[in-house]
Amino acid sequence: MALAHRSPGSPLWLRLKPLLTQGALMALVLLVTFASLRYEGFLSTYNISSFFRYNSMFMLIAIGMTFVIITGGIDLSVGSVAAMASVVAALASPHGLLAGLLAGALAGAAVGLLNGLVITRLRVEPFVATLGTFLGARGLAQLASRQNAVSVDQAGAFTQLGQGDLLRLPIPLLITLVMLGLGVVVLRYTRFGRYALCTGDNEDASRLMGFNVDHVKLGVYVISGLLAGLAGVILASQFGAGQPVEGVGWELTAIAGVVVGGTLLTGGRGSLGSSMIGVILLGLIFNVLNFENGKGVISIDVFWQNVIRGVFLLIVVVLQSRRVAHEDS
């Protein structure tokens, strides 16, 4: 059996590994069970719909972030890209829903392409490259909007993209599910997905095997930028305006969700489904805190959310590093 070779003195981490690898899912189930028993209206159609309508933006960004982290990279620009794309989409919205959608998504993809080219052609580290576009995209959003929210066209159908429902489900959630399905197919059943995993596992070996590692890296950053741009389109549609100051800390939310879901920051291992569980778990924590605030038992300021995300991410990264160390030993 799998455990037969382990001595009674094996580290607790190894003995509990099967349980810990599913920790995010177990925590999600326990949290939903607790909240449904404690808070009236937690499982109401309104709360569930509102939750997924808003958190779909983070789920989209996390899909792209998963691809990037699987290759051993990082994308710090996604929050700023979403803000920039929301402004671009709002400016294009008078020309129709499709124009606004394509303008915002392509603006995001363009930043992703820039990230990929700087990383693969100029050999700049992903952290530095995406930090640069993080600042640049934010600046472009503020320049294009003159540091003010840009109202979308209310006469057309653009606002339905973020505010509407289809088949009794929020349209942003349906868009996310489509992107998730496409992402799973790409990651599991295409050469690109296999090459991305191999690149993150061992880049040098992948090059020796003849894989075009640079094309893979370029591709994952374009995917990340495209999905961040799409999240920005939904942001503008949902709130009725392009938001140049929005998206602060979104990259932390995406990275935290992906890592909580089990994707290794060192690359080579990850799952889009697990990333979605991680993002939903983080979102539900704040949803529960809002319900708790309503009871008047505690009062958590909105600015504490980033503190909680940061601490949560730090804990998971420490646990993940211990897991990798034990597996390598």
Rank of each mutant, 00 (worst) to 15 (best):
M1F: 15
A4M: 13
S10K: 09
S10L: 11
P11D: 08
R15Y: 09
K17C: 09
L19F: 13
L20H: 06
G23I: 11
M26L: 12
M26S: 09
V32M: 11
F34C: 08
S36D: 05
S50P: 03
Y54P: 04
F58Q: 03
L60I: 09
F67V: 01
V68D: 00
I70Q: 04
V78M: 05
A82R: 00
S86H: 03
V88W: 05
L91V: 10
S93Y: 04
G96I: 04
G100D: 04
G100A: 07
L102N: 06
A103S: 08
V111Y: 03
V118Q: 10
T120E: 13
L122C: 12
L122A: 14
L122F: 15
R123M: 03
V128A: 13
V128R: 08
V128H: 08
T130P: 02
T133F: 02
L135C: 10
L135A: 15
G136K: 05
G136W: 06
R138F: 00
G139D: 12
G139F: 07
L140R: 06
L140I: 14
A141W: 02
Q142D: 12
L143I: 15
A144K: 10
R146P: 04
R146F: 10
Q147P: 09
A149V: 11
A155R: 13
A157V: 07
T159C: 13
L161V: 06
L167Y: 09
R168Q: 13
R168H: 13
L173D: 02
L177T: 05
G181N: 07
G183P: 02
V186C: 07
R188H: 13
R191M: 12
L197I: 11
G200V: 01
G200T: 01
D201K: 09
A205F: 12
G210F: 09
N212P: 04
H215L: 13
H215D: 14
K217H: 14
L218E: 07
S224M: 06
G225H: 02
G229M: 00
L230F: 03
A231Y: 00
G232T: 01
G240F: 04
G247A: 08
V248A: 09
V248E: 10
L252R: 03
V258H: 01
T263P: 00
G268C: 07
L272F: 03
S274P: 00
M276F: 10
I277Y: 01
V279Y: 03
L281Q: 01
L284G: 02
F286Q: 02
L289P: 00
E292Q: 15
V297D: 14
I298V: 14
I300T: 09
F312I: 11
L313P: 02
L314C: 08
V318K: 11
V318P: 04
Q320F: 13
S321P: 10
R322C: 10
R323I: 14
H326M: 15
D328W: 15
